[in-house]
Amino acid sequence: MLAPETSAYRDTMAKLGAAVNIITTGTLEAPVGFTASAVCSVTDTPPTLLVCLNRNSRARAAFHEGSALCVNVLAAPQQDLAGHFASPLTMEERFARGHWSSMVTGAPVLNEAVATFDCRISQIVEVGTHSVMFGVVAALRSHETHGGLMYFNRSYHTLPAATA
């Protein structure tokens, strides 16, 4: 069985919408972060999610088994921040924007994020061009003030805030 062409696969994957996240590790003094949409839940017992990171990313070396991994789910007004963290800027320049704190693991937490999953990396699996990092959740935080930011068909879209 032949695999689809890479370009056809990418074009079709563009139709699979996803939340936009800033993934962080390190500490507030030495932060590392990148923008990702390849994030999903694995199981709720124990609460675990996965994050995919391109193996050529300069952020990759900072992520290793046992280290912190924080998923900061972006709010609709944070589209510029998503682009900022996807750019060739230095880590210092990236973290100059937003308000940052930490939770249990010490990884940088974006205070304005819609949701935060503060995790420890339990396993990293190398698959093709990407590292798949599994994070066991140590702490959670969520805010209902803004809608979410989605990436679909190669562009950003906003979702409305939750209504009571």
Rank of each mutant, 00 (worst) to 15 (best):
I23K: 03
H64F: 10
N21M: 00
G128F: 11
C40S: 15
P160Q: 12
I23W: 05
V125C: 11
N111I: 13
R97D: 01
R55I: 05
S57R: 05
G106H: 09
L53G: 10
A61D: 14
T45M: 12
F117A: 15
V32C: 11
A68Q: 01
P160A: 14
N111F: 00
N54E: 11
V132S: 13
C119Y: 09
A138P: 00
T90C: 12
S67D: 11
I121A: 03
V20P: 01
A86Q: 04
T6W: 08
M103H: 14
F34G: 03
A59E: 02
T163R: 14
Y9D: 07
P88H: 04
E92P: 02
M91D: 14
P4A: 14
H146I: 07
C70Y: 04
L49H: 03
V127G: 00
F95Y: 04
L140P: 01
E144C: 12
S102D: 14
Y156E: 06
A19W: 00
T35Y: 02
I124P: 05
S67I: 07
S67A: 15
E5V: 06
V125H: 15
T24D: 06
T129Y: 11
T27S: 15
H143I: 06
L28Q: 05
M133D: 11
H146W: 11
F34C: 10
A3H: 13
T158H: 06
I124L: 05
L28I: 08
R58K: 13
S122P: 03
R120L: 14
D118S: 01
A36L: 04
F85V: 01
I22P: 02
L49W: 05
F117D: 06
E29K: 13
Q79T: 07
S101D: 11
G33Y: 07
T48S: 12
E5A: 15
S87G: 02
Q79E: 15
V20H: 05
G66A: 06
E93R: 03
F95G: 07
E92Y: 01
V71P: 01
H99Q: 07
